[in-house]
């Protein structure tokens, strides 16, 4: 349990500082965008959230490969936590993207923005991860199937983005380059600082979540040793690895 907590304090401090610096850069340093104006400042929260959550999904797949190779429960836990946190981040990313669409195009949802649409599909797919875990009783099988799901869906994420992008380009010209290919220097600096801040936040929360889960498991183990199998409370509605 201590191994998970060891770096948590340093990581938390680094995250807090980077996040504050990023916010300061966004609101006091970087100039308004020439085309979009003030509303473009959503870019600095939305795009990092989206990128980090997508990387998180793929990371969940990578951890799942490690689980299938080694069979160690810790990898299953990492895969679960990576996907769990990515899901939370991507909901925040989706909401901020929707607000941006409303602000700049007047609609809460824009089908002609392929990144947003592909993102929604990925979220809908990963929403089934926890129900899937939950509906398999045997723990070993649950971990194995969840790992297979994480690998397949992790590989699906980039493919899905390509196909959806093709489908939209086919019908409409591309309105806005969300990845910000050629940004001026000040915007680039702000964007990368935000990206770093959100990545650190992801790492911190993931470590935090892991530590909490491990502590929970440790408590249950203690209870079992102390009071025997009969004293175990039934597990609550949780799809987490046990």
């Amino acid at each position: 349990m201590t191994t998970h907590v060891r770096h948590l304090r340093g990581l938390t401090i680094a995250t807090a500082i980077t996040l504050l610096v990023a916010l300061a850069l966004v609101f006091f340093y970087v100039p308004f965008d020439a085309n979009q104006g003030f509303i473009q400042k959503i870019f600095y929260i939305h795009v990092p959230l989206a990128i980090v959550s997508l990387v998180g999904y793929v990371l969940g797949g990578v951890f799942a490969v490690a689980y299938l190779r080694t069979g160690e429960r810790a990898w299953d836990m990492r895969s679960y936590t990576a996907i769990h946190m990515a899901l939370i981040f991507s909901v925040a990313g989706l909401v901020s993207g929707s607000i941006w669409a409303k602000g700049s195009w007047g609609h809460w949802w824009v089908w002609s923005e392929p990144t947003l649409v592909a993102y929604l599909i990925v979220i809908l797919l990963y929403c089934t991860y926890q129900p899937l875990r939950f509906s398999i009783e045997d723990f070993e099988r649950q971990s194995r199937y969840a790992a297979v799901f994480a690998i397949v869906c992790g590989a699906f994420v980039p493919i899905n983005f390509m196909v959806v992008r093709l489908s939209v380009n086919y019908l409409h010209p591309h309105i806005l380059n969300l990845e910000g290919g050629n940004l001026p220097g000040s915007m680039k600096l702000t964007f990368y600082t935000s990206l770093l801040a959100i990545s650190l936040l992801y790492a911190t929360l993931m470590k935090y979540e892991m530590a909490a889960k491990m502590t929970r498991i440790e408590t249950r183990r203690l209870r079992r040793r102390l009071l025997g199998e009969d004293a175990m409370r039934p597990l609550g509605r949780s799809a987490a690895p046990q």
Binding site: I121, V122, L124, L125, T128, P131, L132, S135, I136, E137, R141, Y145, V148, F149, V152, C153, F156, I159, N160, V163, V164, S167, Y170
Partner: peptide, 29 residues
């Protein structure tokens, strides 16, 4: 995957439909 889960009829379409979307997009368009 779905055949070994409790909610067999639910899990199948829930996972399958998003995974099939790229094929659906390409076929339909």
């Amino acid at each position: 995957i779905a055949v070994h889960t409790r909610a067999r009829d639910l899990i199948g379409p829930m996972i399958g439909l998003p995974l099939l979307l790229p094929a659906l997009i390409a076929t339909s368009l």
